[in-house]
């Protein structure tokens, strides 16, 4: 290749990645630097930001401890609840369902995930709200049952919202499983239950890990579900952030919380990757 041809090839490559690079820099890297700078700043007299270098905001994180506790407790519980419901479904889809029906059944799991979470969460607000199930319960003599604005409602909304995201990676890892291993296990006289715990479950662990990591990470930043189904009583870090940025306008403190949230997400990701590494055979799961 001549030198000019090489230069030309390089220029084309640069031109191809230039717009995306600009986007990544201006709308990801720069904003992130901005909140880190803010997190070490001070609150101005009328809200907003005043340049400074102080750890005051981070030292003050305890003021929003409840949001952190709720999130760090309910996100893993939510992910675990999703897993309990998702595993049998994924198992059925990958192993039991007939190939003809499988495509339809898988589509039926995926489709809700891509429809508005706001609308799906609203649906539960409607069902659990005063004119929904509690109203029906009054007919059979249970008055004043409150379902909405409880931790249970938030957990229900979480399982409902994120179930598809848990089912898919587990399904993918089970579907790749070599059936002959299951037959071999049965031929060697293993009970179906010991085949499951000895063969199927270990081989699907990468999918399980991916599912747990995806759901936990998304839950850490959740806002809508606790807002609509927790009604201000069960609130997450996301709700604290909305309050600090749009209502109380304490941007430096909010930035410190946002930076901490990202740090938590990174830690969760690293732990998940580490575990996935250990069980080896990590497979990438497409999001679509």
């Amino acid at each position: 290749m001549t030198l000019t041809a090489q230069v030309k090839k390089r220029l084309v490559t640069i031109a191809l990645v230039a717009p995306a690079s600009l986007w990544l820099f201006v709308f990801l890297v720069l904003p992130f630097i901005a909140i880190i700078v803010f997190a070490f700043g001070e609150r101005g007299p009328v809200g907003g930001y005043q340049p400074a270098f102080t750890f005051e905001q981070f030292a003050n994180l305890g003021a929003r401890a409840a949001a952190f506790v709720n999130t760090l407790v309910l996100a893993p519980i939510g992910a675990a609840a999703c897993l309990l419901v998702a595993y049998p479904v994924a198992y059925y889809l990958a192993i039991k369902a007939s190939p003809q029906r499988r495509l339809l059944l898988v589509s039926l799991v995926v489709v809700p995930f891509w429809t508005s979470l706001l609308v799906r969460t609203y649906a539960w607000m409607y069902i659990l709200g005063a004119r929904g199930i509690p109203h029906l319960l009054e007919y059979i003599g249970f008055d004043n049952v409150r379902l909405l604005n409880t931790p249970g409602a938030v957990l229900l909304g979480i399982v409902y919202g994120y179930l598809p995201l848990m089912i898919m990676p587990i399904y993918v890892s089970l579907e790749k499983l070599d059936r002959r291993l299951l037959e071999a296990s049965a031929d060697l006289g293993a009970h179906p239950i010991s085949t499951f715990f000895g063969v199927t479950l270990p081989l699907s662990l990468p999918g399980v890990m991916t599912g747990i990591a995806l759901v936990t990470i998304l839950l850490l930043g959740e806002y809508l579900i606790p807002q609509l189904l927790g009604g201000g009583k069960v609130f997450f870090i996301g709700n604290a952030l909305v309050d600090l940025f749009l209502q109380s306008r304490n941007w430096p403190f909010g930035s410190a919380i946002a930076v901490t949230l990202v740090a938590v997400v990174v830690v969760v990701l690293l732990v998940a990757m580490r575990i996935a590494w250990r069980i080896a055979g990590t497979r990438q799961v497409d999001l679509v």
Partner: peptide, 9 residues
């Protein structure tokens, strides 16, 4: 990165 952080940043 959570949407809420993207929005804020």
């Amino acid at each position: 990165v959570p949407g809420v952080v993207i929005g804020i940043a």
